[in-house]
Amino acid sequence: MGSTEGLAEWVRRAASGETSAFSELYRRTRPLVARLMAGFAPLDSDEVEDVIQETFVRAFRALPRLKEAGAFEAWLLSIARNRARTRLERKASLRRLEDDISDPEPETVPALPEALQLERDIEVVRQLISELPDGEEKRTVQLFYIEGELSAREIAEQLGVGKSAVTMRLERFRGRIKRELLRRVLAGRWE
């Protein structure tokens, strides 16, 4: 998180048309997007590459309209998640080809809390993980988020469960974290 301001500076430079800033943004943030994609077990490696590419194409196209340079990382990850979900829903025939989950409009992305707040959020999440009852969900969350090495597919293999079971566990846990962060946002960050 300490590199947030450094990233924002590259965002500003890219938005002003500085060529090298785009490759630097890509270099810095691609691993994060790829790691996010590693949680979508039903996507194969080619689909993951396609989603990563689509994410950056969308983000770079819209970058000059991004009002808050400091929100780039969260905005990029939001786009990536939307692209992955759209891909999965189309794959499962739940979504028509022309239908698309819309990404957050760059003009309306608000300023995000400072790094200190994010550090607090991380501590809250660590606490929530430690409070999870011992079991498969906790093990899955630890392997994917705390150890951060294995993909959801690899975790499924290691735990001897289906790919979608791992993705569902991660999504369920993530829903809990999202509720907690939303509550915190509602409790003060917008007021």
Binding site: M1, L32, R35, L36, A71, E73, A74, W75, L76, L77, S78, I79, R81, N82, R85, I101, S102, P104, T108, V109, P110, L112, L118, D121, I122, V125, R126, I129, Y145, I146, E147, G148, E149, E171, R174, G175, I177, K178, L181, L182, V185
Partner: peptide, 20 residues
């Protein structure tokens, strides 16, 4: 299973991915 509000999804993922 739903996006938003704003870039909350990205914030959540940023926090989670920062745990490693």
């Amino acid at each position: 299973t739903h996006s938003g509000p704003d870039v909350l999804d990205g914030q959540v993922d940023a926090v989670l991915l920062a745990l490693a």
